[in-house]
Design a protein around this nucleic acid. Structure first.
Lengths: 156, 156
DNA sequence: TATTGTTATACTCTATAACTATA
DNA sequence: TATAGTTATAGAGTATAACAATA
């Protein structure tokens, strides 16, 4: 992904008594609104950890694909190489990720979670999942599965 | 809304051969991915017009609620008053919106679409709707309604 | 030549805080 | 005192372009 981007610091609430016209009919806008709700859940789950959605995504991806390069990380996040570099610097600075030289190609780094990064990710992953499901308790589990299915079809 | 924010300049495609781990299970991440797809549709619909999702939202809201104040516009967009001011400046600069003094309260502006703004919005609204539905042709109309229903429940 | 990472720079959007003029 | 809008300033995140090292 890329701009997980709800830079949102404050919740967005529908302003009462206002006509939202065609916005209510647009899937793009509805997704936006729903995403804000999920972002707020994420923020609760990650509170006190300095973790943002892109950072979380990066950790998960590195954890599941040890040794991947910064360029590939950038592709996943949808950002330029320069941005992937800064992201990696941050994760490394927090002691969660380390760069190792790869055999075979001395240009690229291989990215790996540190022991500490693994432990941290373990905990935060559980929390994020928990909150994600919690927000979604507004719908049934069956509806959740249906929703995931439809979203998947859309983004393909 | 607020940060409709996919600042996205390039499409995001799932990187082949990579393990996305728990991300596939998270509604937050799935929403993100789907939103990118809809954002790209929006960008096509609005190409050449310098319109972004927040700007589009602002025009629609002003069009449907003539005379609203900058503060309320800010609430809808989920941004601070200072940002609502800059947004209004932009829309005014494009000749789409005008500020009029309100009777009764000399502090606040009332925002209105200009004739030109109305015409422009008319056209772009049709295009955006068209593209929104087009992307969503990947799902049936019945599925679309179900999706909207579920998203609505989430963001409430 | 093409690719990976790096560096420097600039831009966009947003937040915060202080200010003014009204209410 | 509180509110609407304004102004100035700063920060985060990203893009672009040029560069070095390596392929």
């Amino acid at each position: 992904m890329s701009p997980h981007r709800p830079r949102l610091l404050a919740p967005i609430h529908r302003v009462a008594g206002l006509d939202y016209d065609v916005l209510d009919e647009l899937l793009g806008y509805s997704l936006r609104r729903a995403q804000v709700a999920l972002f707020l859940a994420f923020r609760d789950a990650a509170r006190g950890s300095d973790l943002t959605p892109p950072r979380f995504t990066a950790l998960v991806i590195i954890g599941a694909n040890p040794g991947l390069s910064q360029s590939v990380l950038g592709q996943v996040l949808g950002i330029a190489r320069s941005g992937a570099k800064l992201m990696t610097d941050y994760l490394e600075g927090r002691g969660w990720v380390e760069r190792r030289r790869r055999n075979g190609d001395a240009r690229a780094w291989g990215l790996y979670l540190t022991r500490r990064g693994q432990q941290f990710l373990e905990r935060v992953k559980a929390r994020v999942l928990d909150y994600d499901y919690r927000v979604v308790r507004k719908i049934t589990l069956k509806e959740r599965k249906e929703l995931l299915r439809l979203l998947e079809k859309l983004s393909r």
